[in-house]
């Protein structure tokens, strides 16, 4: 089977990573442009922002799939020859790792929970890549400052390293400038 291009784009907040990834996906000339969004609205401002982005993208010809968790659920919605963008790994990881917060049993604290999700994620990424002509994965640079949450950082580092090794191209965004590292 011919594999689609897998591209990993990472950068700081407001580095232009999403806009750059959108350009890459558009240039891939897929039959449809699919946007998998993992953000969750936690306040009215965010809800408004998400709705606005969704509307902007729809006018621009994008199909949006809201998938805050369980990326595998987006898989059946993706067709052969789609060009796909996933934005982004950091929000997805937070949603998965802190799943069960209301019930007082975090996935992060449950042995094997995140390992299982990680295993699924790798399979899903490979499957999307196999189906789509182009798959851009966007993430955020948050490992250059000490955070309280070591578990989150460790998982993010592991996922990023895997993506960088798996991808055909790995790009670091620096204030709108794309630095191709692979």
């Amino acid at each position: 089977m011919v594999q689609g291009q897998l591209v990993f784009v990472s950068g700081g907040v407001r580095s232009g990573k999403s806009a750059y990834a959108e350009t890459l996906v558009r240039q891939a000339r897929g039959e449809r442009n699919i946007y998998i969004a993992s953000g969750i609205a936690r306040d009215p401002e965010m809800a408004e922002r998400i709705a606005r982005h969704r509307k902007d993208r729809a006018q621009d010809g994008w199909w949006t799939i809201e998938q805050p968790q369980q990326l595998s659920e987006a898989l059946p919605l993706i067709r052969q020859n789609d060009a796909v963008l996933w934005d982004c790994v950091t929000t997805w990881l937070a949603n998965e790792l802190y799943e069960g917060f209301e019930q007082g049993s975090l996935c992060a604290d449950t042995p094997g929970c995140m390992e299982q999700k990680w295993h699924e994620l790798k399979n899903t990424i490979d499957s999307i890549r196999a189906k789509a002509v182009y798959f851009a994965v966007v993430s955020n640079e948050v490992l250059d400052e000490p955070l309280v949450d070591d578990t989150y950082q460790e998982w993010l580092g592991k996922i990023h390293q895997w993506l960088a090794s798996r991808a055909d191209q790995a790009i670091e965004m620096e204030n709108g400038l794309a630095i191709r590292r692979k």
């Binding site: 640079e141 490992l143 250059d144 000490p146 950082q153 460790e154 993010l156 580092g157 592991k158 990023h160 390293q161």
Partner: peptide, 12 residues
């Protein structure tokens, strides 16, 4: 003297 530098959990 040699330095290997980068963010946390980057594979240094």
């Amino acid at each position: 003297m040699r330095i290997v530098f980068g963010g946390a959990f980057n594979g240094k």
